[in-house]
Nucleic acid binder design. Structure first.
Length: 607
DNA sequence: GGAAGTACGTA
DNA sequence: CGTACGTACTTCCC
């Protein structure tokens, strides 16, 4: 047995590293004496779905607040058996982003998500309930290193968590490449690995009492853990890729890119270099004036659109073709497992409002929305069809019912068009015989912009509405929807006094006092997220999880058996829809063909 | 090699 | 005084 020590604020953390099977007696004693354990794994990478082609677990670590054990499970089958035993023996496992370690444990040790999830306490969830702000927003952040720095000790955070960077330097490789390369018995590696479960254990005990009483009383802790489990099950299932379709698009986009790069090469060497483009356009006699945030000359799409020259067209087309190919089609192909499936990485509390973020091979939240071009790459199972069920007007309905605004509620109850109503309030009645107000766009822009916490400027910039119309519509909004105005003021007042607002689910969200206008948006966005989260949990309880593929904000994508699609879609939509403070948030399904893209190609698609 | 800055895709 | 994200690229800096 190797024993390492880490000195920490006059305390000494003890890290036991099992070297031979004889050491396991002491390990077993430790596990039996500690029913609540910090837990972590080290592996060869993040691609747990490739466990049949190269992905391996290397170490399994268990600890309490002062002592841990590192089992180098990659070198000894008995260590592996001991890790499996410990996972099953533990009453509680505390891990940071425990979903990842659950995937690793399932794939490499055979201990399933279903076994692990009920005993998991995830410090990432606790951290978000306490303070969801990132480091850039002057909050604690969400990574283990950031949290240790904020809540435990800055020196320990940088020393221990910086060690992987230092090891990478020693091995002369990039930080991202060190994980499979570092020697099993490298002491710096073992120290890094061994302290992780100790930090997780300590963090939980620091964070637990900081979870707001209201959030705890509402059961948010258990709720978020159950949600993370269902999400993990979706990650495990993955999404089937139509590799042939993706390959076809890749070839097409490559050819297009080459053609336009050829055109542009008369003027610039690198179409991605803003510097070269600015020079080239100046040589050609165009005066650029638009500035970026930092005050440099901008060459974004708006600037390029304003320049009537073959170079600007070539740059736009070439960059777009390259970006689409790499970001979506190649990501899907490169991310496929041996069964032709991709596994999204879903962060159930990605945003400070608790919205999901989805990253990796299927960055679903960034797919172009106007048609099925990208989404055709993802297909339902053999004999299945893709179904998309989304909530109708969720955020505006949340705004109406949370604020109990009589005018807005009446519009929704009578199934009237809210954007028209805002337009009428600002510009007078519609012309007889018309279904849409001639200034409906201004009404629509205003309704959304206010929900974002914006002003008239947001309406002009974001929705292309003339300045005068935007100003008038925004003024009319606040005079018409007095309930919303009152609610927004109430939230601002809460934020001003306490620094926080509470959402409908009793989630506490910090609001920057210099940006009180964002309070309304935080409430709406976060409450809407929780309505989708509620739907996911209810669908799980009703047995829909094997068919669920992805949540995309106010939409859930399914793969349903073709012959049962109509019945299951209806059932799922009824489970999803929810009456929030007296107002129904309706859910509507669209049944496509096999690919996700086919849903968007439907004639009467809302998409 | 990694951080910062820029741009652009989404709800 | 327009919210929340992820990805890919170049340039800057150590």
């Amino acid at each position: 047995m190797k024993v390492l020590h880490y000195k920490f604020r006059r305390q000494i953390l003890r890290i036991n590293v099992a070297e031979t099977s004889w050491d396991l007696d002491r390990f077993i004693d430790f596990i039996e004496a500690n029913p609540v354990l910090g837990f972590d794994t080290e592996s060869t990478g993040l691609d747990w779905w490739n466990s049949d082609r190269g992905f391996r677990i290397r170490l399994a670590q268990f600890g309490n607040g002062v002592e841990s054990w590192v089992l180098p499970v990659e070198v000894n089958a008995q260590f592996k058996a001991a890790a499996i035993w410990a996972l099953r023996k533990a009453e509680r496992l505390i891990a940071h982003n425990g979903t990842f370690d659950q995937h690793v444990s399932e794939r490499t040790l055979g201990v399933t998500l279903e076994e692990l999830a009920p005993k998991m306490l995830d410090t990432k969830i606790f951290a978000h309930l306490v303070d969801p702000r990132g480091v850039k927003e002057f909050g604690p952040g969400a990574k283990l290193e950031e949290l240790v720095k904020y809540y435990i000790d800055p020196v320990a955070a940088s020393e221990v968590k910086g060690s992987m960077a230092s090891i990478a330097k020693r091995y002369k490789v990039k930080k991202a490449e060190i994980w499979p390369l570092v020697e099993t018995w490298d002491e710096e590696y073992l120290l890094y690995a061994g302290t992780d479960p100790i930090w997780a254990y300590r963090l939980l005990h620091v964070l637990m009492p900081k979870v707001p009483a209201r959030s705890r009383a509402s059961g948010l802790i258990g709720w978020e853990h159950r949600l993370a489990h269902v999400t993990a099950l979706m990650e495990r299932t993955g999404y089937l890729v139509d590799a042939e379709y993706a390959a076809m698009r890749i070839a097409e986009l490559k050819a297009e890119e080459e053609q336009w790069v050829g055109v542009a090469s008369q003027w610039v060497e690198n179409i991605n270099s803003d510097k070269q483009l600015i020079e080239a356009f100046h040589r050609l006699g165009f005066k650029l004036t638009k500035k970026t945030k930092k005050g440099n000359l901008s060459v974004d799409s708006e600037v390029l659109d304003s320049i009537d020259h073959p170079l600007s067209e070539a740059v736009k087309k070439a960059t777009k073709a390259a970006k689409w190919r790499k970001t979506w089609f190649e990501a899907a192909i490169n991310g496929m497992d041996s069964q032709g499936r991709v596994h999204a990485s879903m962060n159930t509390l990605g945003a400070r409002t608790a919205r999901y973020s989805i990253s990796g091979a299927i960055a679903a939240q960034t797919f172009p929305a106007k048609d099925g071009y990208v989404r055709h790459s993802f297909i339902a199972e053999e004999g299945h069809v893709t179904v998309s069920i989304d909530f109708g007007n969720m955020e505006l309905r949340v705004m109406a019912s949370a604020s109990n605004d009589p005018v807005m509620l009446e519009a929704f109850h009578a199934d009237e068009d809210l954007h028209n109503i805002t337009a009428i309030a600002a510009f007078g009645p519609m012309e007889p015989g018309q279904k849409k107000h001639s200034k409906r766009a201004a009404g629509k822009g205003t309704n959304f912009a206010i929900g974002f916490g914006g002003t008239w400027r947001a309406v002009t910039d974001g929705f292309g509405v003339p300045e005068e119309d935007a100003k008038r519509a925004v003024e009319a909004f606040w005079c018409t929807y007095l309930g919303v105005a009152k609610f927004a003021e109430k939230l601002k007042g809460d934020a001003r006094r306490t620094g926080y607002i509470y959402t409908a689910t009793d989630r506490r969200l910090p609001v920057d006092r210099r940006r009180l206008y964002s309070a309304l948006n935080y409430y709406i966005q976060s409450t809407a997220r929780d309505i989708t989260a509620r739907a996911i949990l209810h669908l799980h309880a009703a047995g829909f999880t094997p068919w669920m593929r992805l949540p995309v904000h106010d939409e859930i994508v399914f793969s349903f058996p073709r012959e049962r699609a109509a019945e299951l879609t209806e059932k799922a939509a009824r489970i999803m829809e929810f009456t929030f403070k007296g107002l129904l948030i309706p859910a509507d399904g669209e049944i496509g063909d096999r690919s996700w893209g086919s849903v968007l190609d439907l004639e009467d698609s809302k998409h």
